[in-house]
Amino acid sequence: MSAAALVQLMRTPESAAALRADQWNGILSAARAERLLGTLAALLEYVAVPDAVRAILADARRDAEREQRIALWEANRAVEALAPLGLEPILLKGAAYAAAGLNAARGRMIGDLDILVPRDRLEEAEGALLAAGWEWVKPDPYDDAYYRRWMHELPPLIHRERDRMIDVHHTILPLTARPRPDAAALIAQSVEIGGGLRVLSPADRIIHAVAHMLADGDLSGGLRNLWDIKCLFAEIEDKSELERRAARHGLTAHLARARRLADHVYGQGETRVTLADRVFLRRLLSRDAWGRDSRKWLGLAFYIRSHLLRMPPLMLIRHLWTKWRKGHRPV
């Protein structure tokens, strides 16, 4: 499986010298599909690779630099738009890693801008962003109502001139999910990094990455999320604080699993993994040499799991029925 070859190379960049052309082809396609090519390029910056690979990695490095520049500019624009309210948004995920200069940001592709604001100020924030040029992209009233009632974020907004998406969060998991992270604690512990920018505390950054990967979603893009987590682990100083925060947010088991998976995929692989962990690993490492998901059924199972995580069964049935009637099909 090429995903396995990819993570093997990420673990030991110096093994690049031994790779054959067909292995490179599989690794490059798997890395693109997992949005890890820029990260791979950063890891291999000072490693000897074939000329054809060097050119591809140089392109990826340039793309990642551009994405980070744009992401930080978007963050700057959001701060500017919210400043009159006296509101300092907290950056999440990619933009936060880039703004704080963390290792997870090296070569990382950054898509949307994710920010966190207190729930009781959500309406004001929304109004300010709309006034500053962001617009709705979910025209469907059901979707809009669903977001507002049940999700951890506003329906996505896109800026009309810059064409960039912003997700405004008020917590880090949907309100329907079983764990209930303490959003007020996340905000209270956030740290200022200059330029009017704030990010979550080191421990809460990990908690958010773990919640995002294991308590929400179907694990697509999981390898990238796990790489973030691996990098964040390496940079945290107070490990006991991390346990305390996980307990406070109801994510202790998720944190433990993330630790095992990260060790197994990107680390020494010394931790014992459970049977369930093995299923997660199979899902994470499912890209073949053409960048395809070679385990479609497992993907479908995780898709169903993502919905069960997100809402209780009866609500789920009603939701799926509504979406089906509107023509939505999974996969």
Binding site: A21, D22, W24, N25, L28, S29, P50, A52, V53, A55, I56, W290, G291, R292
Partner: peptide, 12 residues
């Protein structure tokens, strides 16, 4: 066939 390709294209 032994070249390292810039891109993969799939017809599925």
């Amino acid at each position: 066939a032994a070249a390292i390709a810039d891109y993969a294209v799939r017809l599925e």
